[in-house]
Simulated assay, not measured.
Amino acid sequence: MEYVRLGSTGLEVSPICFGTWRFGLEHEDSGVVETGREDAHELLDALEERGGNFIDTANSYGGGDSERWIGEWLEERDREDYVIASKCFWSTVSRFQENLSKKNVKAEVEGSLDRLGTDYLDILYLHRSDDDTPIEHTLRAVDDLVSEGKVHYVGVSTCDAWRLVKGLWKADVNNYEAFTVTQPEYSAVYRDPIVDDLDQPPEHKEPITEYLDVCEDQDLAVCPYSPLHGGFLTGKYERADDGSVRGPDGSRADIDDQFESDYVAEAAWSVLDEVRSVAEEVDATPAQVSLRWLMDHERFTCVPIVGARTVDQLDENFGAVEVELSDDQWERIDAAIDA
């Protein structure tokens, strides 16, 4: 597999990142655990076999099980062969559950390193914003962790464009380690203009154009989560006669009561139709075309994070590496959101 340079970090990563948010995830409404320990290790084995080296996790995923299971898997491997990203904000080791204070950031990172069984994180993301802690305090804590060799690069996930700029500015004037990687929600469906009838929290409704403009200007790598829009862009969903979403048994629409309200709006169907059309032209699946559309962004390095639940899904996702889109096909998908 041909690796790509992750923005200005110098890290060489597989063009698709494997996200492990499903590891240990239990749905409250159904009680279903999406990925257990054995399945998690099987997926990581499959990732290794396909040449993937970029793994994304967080201290909160599965109550810490995601990091633990990755750590167990890494024990028999050379840590240097993998790029591991984790996050801080929702703590599993501190009673301060939601803040980015110096105390909490350092405690959370120590907890992540312990669960992962490693001495360092390649990337530490600030998982969410903290309005009550000055960003320079958080950046100072992260800068200390970089100086100690416990964190190599700093990223930010899910924030507004102005917060991203403020963080970059504060790092610059204080000579702290600055953000080099971002992790927004972004896909062929979820972009600007963002459809406004989705039941999403306020920070998810901000137009993403300005955010991505900052990433381009500052040479920040973009690692979008939910690149298949919660599975919608796999093409497995259909619109029922009553306008509702119809999906196969065991799909997110089947086990997650909020899937339809959170992910599907009128504009989404227009994009899916164009993705399906292009998929037929290039003999690929809608999922592969949707991932390739992200990977082919020229303004910034774009490495989508996939959350496959099965080895077959992982195979399909990594098949996007072999797909080729023409400029016209890419632009048709790009324009479909406005149809």
Score class of each variant (00 low, 15 high):
residue 274 E to V: 15
residue 156 V to S: 03
residue 33 V to A: 07
residue 46 A to L: 07
residue 126 L to Q: 00
residue 85 A to I: 00
residue 231 G to S: 03
residue 7 G to H: 03
residue 70 I to N: 04
residue 99 N to K: 07
residue 23 F to D: 00
residue 38 E to C: 10
residue 301 T to I: 01
residue 302 C to W: 00
residue 179 F to A: 01
residue 207 P to N: 10
residue 265 A to Q: 10
residue 219 D to L: 11
residue 20 T to E: 04
residue 126 L to E: 01
residue 117 G to A: 12
residue 293 W to D: 03
residue 76 E to G: 15
residue 175 N to W: 05
residue 267 A to Q: 12
residue 213 D to T: 13
residue 322 E to Y: 11
residue 93 V to Y: 01
residue 36 G to E: 12
residue 110 E to T: 13
residue 62 G to S: 09
residue 189 V to G: 10
residue 257 D to C: 08
residue 87 K to A: 02
residue 142 V to F: 06
residue 276 R to M: 12
residue 257 D to M: 08
residue 327 D to S: 15
residue 259 F to W: 03
residue 31 G to D: 03
residue 291 L to W: 05
residue 32 V to G: 12
residue 266 E to F: 05
residue 209 T to K: 13
residue 286 P to I: 06
residue 269 W to R: 07
residue 80 E to P: 02
residue 142 V to W: 02
residue 112 S to I: 01
residue 85 A to Y: 00
residue 229 H to V: 07
residue 12 E to I: 06
residue 7 G to Y: 03
residue 223 C to T: 11
residue 137 H to T: 15
residue 298 E to W: 06
residue 112 S to T: 03
residue 261 S to Y: 08
residue 135 I to N: 01
residue 234 T to M: 05
residue 289 V to H: 04
residue 191 R to F: 04
residue 155 G to H: 10
residue 149 G to M: 04
residue 269 W to N: 08
residue 102 K to L: 05
residue 40 A to E: 06
residue 322 E to Q: 15
residue 102 K to T: 11
residue 160 D to C: 09
residue 125 Y to E: 03
residue 307 G to C: 00
residue 201 P to C: 05
residue 81 D to H: 08
residue 207 P to T: 11
residue 136 E to Q: 10
residue 63 G to P: 02
residue 79 R to L: 15
residue 309 R to A: 08
residue 2 E to P: 14
residue 328 D to L: 13
residue 329 Q to I: 05
residue 276 R to Q: 15
residue 16 I to E: 04
residue 142 V to S: 03
residue 335 A to N: 14
residue 118 T to M: 14
residue 37 R to V: 11
residue 265 A to T: 09
residue 121 L to K: 00
residue 100 L to E: 06
residue 2 E to V: 14
residue 334 D to C: 06
residue 10 G to I: 04
residue 302 C to V: 01
residue 61 Y to W: 11
residue 263 Y to M: 15
residue 338 D to L: 14
residue 269 W to M: 13
residue 274 E to N: 14
residue 84 I to M: 05
residue 172 D to Q: 15
residue 14 S to G: 03
residue 4 V to A: 01
residue 316 E to Y: 10
residue 6 L to M: 01
residue 210 E to N: 11
residue 53 N to A: 04
residue 312 D to C: 02
residue 268 A to K: 06
residue 244 S to K: 11
residue 298 E to F: 09
residue 278 V to S: 10
residue 304 P to A: 00
residue 261 S to L: 11
residue 208 I to R: 08
residue 186 Y to H: 12
residue 27 H to C: 12
